[in-house]
């Protein structure tokens, strides 16, 4: 009787042990698969982000080529390109901070238009310099769940290298920010906008007045 009981217990223990082994095996294979899948999906995301920047640079070079004989580029084409690649909504929110929520819809639209015109002006200002540059991708990396950084460099005729970092939204690969030699365009614009908004207690119409005053200068 005792022997039978012992045998039964031994058998059940063995079964139990086999079940644990199976469970560990299944969990491990699930983890490995998940890791492999994650890596492939990360690699895919990084590749897509790189392609997005390549495409942006190609479009930019085409734009520069088409407008090299004029000081000002084709404004409509510029707006199309900006809307295609840039996450304007994010840029507007990021550069106006806490004041964004208080702004009226009209002011929000006006502010986004101001950002577009600022980008166009800055590209037009550098049309000549952009004519003779080449672009080279260096690395890409996923940061957190929502951000992808694409690093690269542009070289001019005299082989002067300028380091760039594009920060993209992992969901749609839209451009959130650009760092040129470690200077973030969003940070710079934010500092300027917030200083003016703070001075005028968050009044966007006064901000636009100051902007147009400085343009007239």
């Amino acid at each position: 009787m005792k022997i039978n009981l012992l045998k039964k217990r031994k058998k059940s223990l063995r079964n139990y042990w086999i079940r644990i082994k199976k469970f560990i095996l299944i969990t491990l294979s699930f983890l490995i698969l998940n890791f492999a899948f994650d890596n492939t999906s990360n690699a895919n995301e990084l590749e897509k982000a790189k392609q997005q920047i390549d495409s942006l640079m190609l479009d930019l070079f085409d734009y520069v080529k088409a407008n090299k004989n004029s000081n000002k580029g084709n404004k409509d084409k510029s707006i199309i390109l900006i809307k295609k690649y840039l996450n304007l909504d994010f840029m507007a929110r990021a550069t106006s901070g806490k004041y964004w929520k208080k702004a009226s819809e009209e002011h929000k639209k006006q502010y986004k238009d101001f950002l577009i015109s600022k980008i166009i002006d800055s590209v037009d200002l550098h049309l000549k310099a952009l004519e003779n540059i080449s672009f080279e991708h260096t690395t890409s990396q996923k940061r957190g769940k929502k951000l992808i950084y694409v690093n690269g460099q542009i070289k001019n005729k005299r082989n002067r290298v300028v380091k760039m970092k594009w920060k993209l939204f992992a969901k749609d690969y839209s451009l959130l920010d650009l760092e040129v030699e470690k200077i973030s365009l969003i940070q710079s614009q934010k500092s300027e906008t917030l200083s003016l908004l703070k001075k005028h207690k968050g009044d966007f119409s006064k901000l636009f007045e100051e902007i147009s005053k400085s343009k007239r200068k």
Binding site: E181, K182, I183, S184, Q187, S188, K190, S191, E192, L194, S195, L196, E210, I211, K213, S214, K217
Partner: peptide, 21 residues
């Protein structure tokens, strides 16, 4: 100098450059 608030812009450029270098 072309910025509506050149003081804030210079401060931002300087601080970013200094901290990151």
């Amino acid at each position: 100098n072309s910025s509506p608030d050149p003081y804030a812009k210079l401060r931002s450029y300087y601080i970013q450059n200094r901290r990151k270098n």
